[in-house]
């Protein structure tokens, strides 16, 4: 177990700044998620930590030691790639035992460790198969077992669930998190899927354009976004942003409800909301409309749970309210969060 830390880490590919000054510090045994859209630099950051890329500037520390210049094998890390990167010509056993062989572990100990790791993951029946004979879920377990046997101090996972179908992904998410809690190894997990990030992470680092825009618990990231990027990247549908003079008012679609629906009646802010379209999604209704801003109308959405039965029709003009404490304020030019402003 170890803490991973980066100090002023930068990586440039030609003109492109893939990672642009990242200071990040994990906690002992933490499940830390790097979340961001594709091309935001999260995988490059992970590869820098793994030692597969050399930084242009800055330092990587594992367990308090600077590991710049050390090859991946000397960093005591284990990594799962998006494709799982199983060796296609080797059996499951040899795939898992490969790193042990490279470390010079003797045959009996190799056997023992492979059996231990595969029994944890429930793939001990598959040892003689080859990767092409395995399902997606089984491959993912083999990739995890391969990491486990090395008894690393840090787990690095690069979108390990993106190759699984939706159903399998939900159960794999659950298993992966349980496994991590059981073995308690510091884990850095890269994903672009906010549901994975919110559901699994102890903390989330939201990345955009090579920088960490916000680091915090899922609740902090969602409820108290630090800037408009974080506010609109998380949440589905994303946070509504309405312009008012020099700032933007943000509120989540689920807090935007017809007048009279919220039980608490005080401290509500009322908006006039002409509705253009209604989508019925079973558990929810998505209501599309516009809210007047200082420089024109802004498209705005409301998400009404199915328990709200107030009739809403396209073309109607309604009054919707948001609890004042759910309004977030951002600077219009910098996009950064500011204190509450008068409406």
């Amino acid at each position: 177990m170890a803490v991973v830390e980066t100090r002023g880490l930068k990586k440039q590919f030609g003109e492109v700044k893939a990672v642009d000054g990242v200071d990040l510090s994990s906690k002992e045994g933490e499940f830390l998620v790097l979340l961001g859209p594709s091309g935001c630099g999260k995988t490059t950051l992970l590869r820098l930590i793994a030692g597969l890329e050399q930084p242009t500037a800055g330092e990587v520390l594992i367990g308090g030691q600077v590991v710049n210049g050390l090859p991946p094998r000397a960093r005591k890390i284990a990594m799962v790639f998006q494709s799982y990167a199983l060796y296609p010509h080797m059996t499951v056993f040899n795939n898992i035992a490969f790193s042990l062989k490279a470390q010079g572990v003797d045959k009996a100990a190799r056997q023992e460790k492979v059996e231990w790791a595969t029994s944890i993951l429930g793939i001990d029946k598959l040892l003689q198969r080859r990767p092409r004979q395995l399902s997606g879920g089984e491959r993912q377990r083999v990739a995890l077992a391969r990491c486990l046997v090395r008894e690393p101090t840090v787990f690095l996972l690069d979108e390990p669930l993106s190759n699984l179908d939706a159903q399998l992904r939900a159960s794999a998410r659950d298993e992966l998190q349980q496994l991590q809690q059981r073995i308690g190894i510091t884990t850095i997990y890269v994903t672009h899927d906010q549901v994975e990030a919110m559901g699994m992470g102890d903390r989330i680092a939201v990345m955009y354009q090579g920088q960490i825009r916000q680091l915090g618990t899922p609740r902090e990231i969602y409820d108290e976004p630090g800037d408009t990027f974080v506010a609109t990247f998380l949440g589905s549908p994303p946070m509504n942003l309405v312009e008012r003079d020099t700032h933007l008012i943000g509120f989540r679609p689920e807090h935007f409800l017809p007048k009279g629906v919220p039980e608490v009646q005080d401290n509500l802010v009322t908006f006039s909301f002409p509705v253009t379209r209604v989508e019925y999604l079973g558990a929810d209704r998505l209501v599309y409309g516009v809210v007047a801003g200082t420089s024109g109308d802004t498209k705005t959405m409301a998400r009404l749970p199915s328990t709200v039965t107030v009739p809403i029709e396209p073309g109607g003009d309604y009054e919707f309210v948001v609890p004042a404490k759910e309004l977030k304020f951002f600077d219009r030019d910098t996009g950064l969060r500011t204190g509450p402003k008068p409406l």
Binding site: L52, R73, A78, M79, A85, Y87, P88, F98, A102, R146
Partner: peptide, 27 residues
Amino acid sequence: IPRDVLDQAEVDGAGFWRTLFQIKIPL
């Protein structure tokens, strides 16, 4: 040969010869 597989070999601690004879040539 996919880059991931070679990166994995590097993470697994395979040196030049092991990568050549046990990963690259078989593939």
